[in-house]
Design a protein around this nucleic acid. Sequence first.
DNA 1: AAACCCACCAACCGCGATACA
DNA 2: GTGTATCGCGGTTGGTGGGTT
Length: 180
Amino acid sequence: MGRSPCCEKAHTNRGAWTKDEDARLIAYIRAHGEGCWRMLPKAAGLRRCGKSCRLRWINYLRPDLKRGNFTQEEDDLIVKIHSLLGNRWSLIAGKLPGRTDNEIKNYWNTHIRKKLLSWGVDPATHRPIKIGSICFERRREEDGAEAQHPQPKCPVDLNLELCISPPLQQATSSSSRSVN
DNA sequence: AAACCCACCAACCGCGATACA
DNA sequence: GTGTATCGCGGTTGGTGGGTT
């Protein structure tokens, strides 16, 4: 048995939100607060599914959101936390006030991922990329590509070695993890 | 000026987790 | 203990704008 859809697609708007829809959503949440996303669209007079309302609020309309470019500090922090937690975007977002998981995920995929790859670092493991048994960086030296197209170097102070913070006994006795 | 390419990002989709009857 | 509804997360898609040919 398949999962039932979260909403009746035939009677809901899809795609980009209009100013009027944004205004209705903001007004409703200011008056009633967040929560019960399932009921919200009907109560707010929106032809959207609750999921869509929640996403729009969290990723775009929340008043505490910090818009604009990521700072170098945020950039470094994302890389460091990602090396510990992997693609746990909501957890990473929790360490970056004013940033959303979606925003960080997009930033990772469009900026940081490419930057790490250009350094010869695997974005998934945060370890030097190896091709077969040959290290990526060594290959570059061997084929002379480095001389013709010098690559940016990984910052010295950015520790990309995997470093799981919980002590060994915690790692074996508990699955809960925290980053501070 | 037009066509094409690419990067960015808002939004959607599917699924696991959780709450509740 | 089980089934259902809802929430929240992560992966992916698609529209748009800017740059290049």
